[in-house]
Design a protein around this nucleic acid. Structure first.
Lengths: 167, 167
DNA sequence: TATTGTTATACTCTATAACTATA
DNA sequence: TATAGTTATAGAGTATAACAATA
């Protein structure tokens, strides 16, 4: 029996293959989202909705545009997301009296209460996902990612209109 | 005039808001994928396809299942992806004589040649994305992410069938 | 004229189940 | 019976353009 192929296909164990950090990041991000979705679905929230609630609670009330930039989600897609949250009374939208084009978005009391339940589930997912890292390493990772996020500033598809480069 | 709201909504600059590492990871992964797509589209490759080619070149020929696990992509979705790559002669599929159920996937010569072009573009994207980090920090990030990837072992949606937990 | 939010739409990605051929 | 690959399909996510209200 040709052990060669068996070893190749079944290897799995310890391939020290170094893949580009970008692809690794993209892949882990997807895996993380999948786990969030799994853990949050019984509560009735999607990962993105949860992230929005967290951001609104910790960042305070803000316009939809500001929230969109913060979550790196397109403004048009944010509308539907907020509609869902609003229909369940987890957030509120009100016109900004200073600029009536704007909607000021805010977490409701009900949303805040739900967040405590959600936060526990989410923290559990993260704790499991980052199991290989000790506390110091998790802080280090968090710091590195935060700096990347702040610098990359995530041009967000909308903000790239009118540039000479493609896309 | 209510300066409160103006400051809140327009802040932008330096909010030291610490978001959960998981959501940060998911968000950056999406942003990274978007940039890959932008940079790779003129070449005619999608991020996932590029990742697959890289993995096949660096990991050697393997079965579709093994590739699916490596890329954390569902086996059924992998089929279409490989069909596209094969139709452009970038990879080849051949039956494994030892187990005729399996397809051994391999990068073609043409695929390898294309990869050198692609790698340059991808590296440029990454270099720009991780601009805030110096070389040591990039290595550190890569190491942390690699360890997470290896430990989390990414259960991949398919592998979770038959467990008592939901999802 | 530019910006905020909205709607509609097309496109991609992901998840699920059922089928086949091999084992 | 179980596994590798395939197909089909529904669902979630994403990108794009056009529009109304307001600045």
């Amino acid at each position: 029996m040709p052990a060669t192929i068996v070893e190749e296909t079944c290897s799995g164990a310890e391939q020290e293959l170094t893949q580009p950090a970008g692809f690794l990041l993209a892949q882990l991000g997807r895996a993380m989202t999948r786990r969030y979705r799994c853990a949050l679905s019984p509560i009735g929230l999607k990962p993105r909705e949860t992230h929005a609630l967290l951001r609104l609670r910790d960042g305070g009330a803000m316009s939809q545009q500001a929230l969109g930039v913060a979550l790196d989600i397109d403004a048009s897609n944010l509308v539907a997301l907020l509609n869902d949250l609003e229909s369940e009374s987890l957030i509120s939208r009100r016109r900004d009296p200073a600029d009536r084009r704007r909607h000021v978005v805010e977490v409701s009391k009900r949303g805040t209460k739900l967040l405590s339940e959600v936060e526990h589930a989410a923290a559990e997912v993260e704790d499991d996902f980052f199991d290989a890292l000790d506390d110091d390493e998790r802080v280090a990772l968090q710091g590195l990612l935060s700096r990347v996020a702040r610098s990359a500033d995530v041009p967000s598809p909308a903000e790239m209109a009118g540039e000479d480069s493609a896309c």
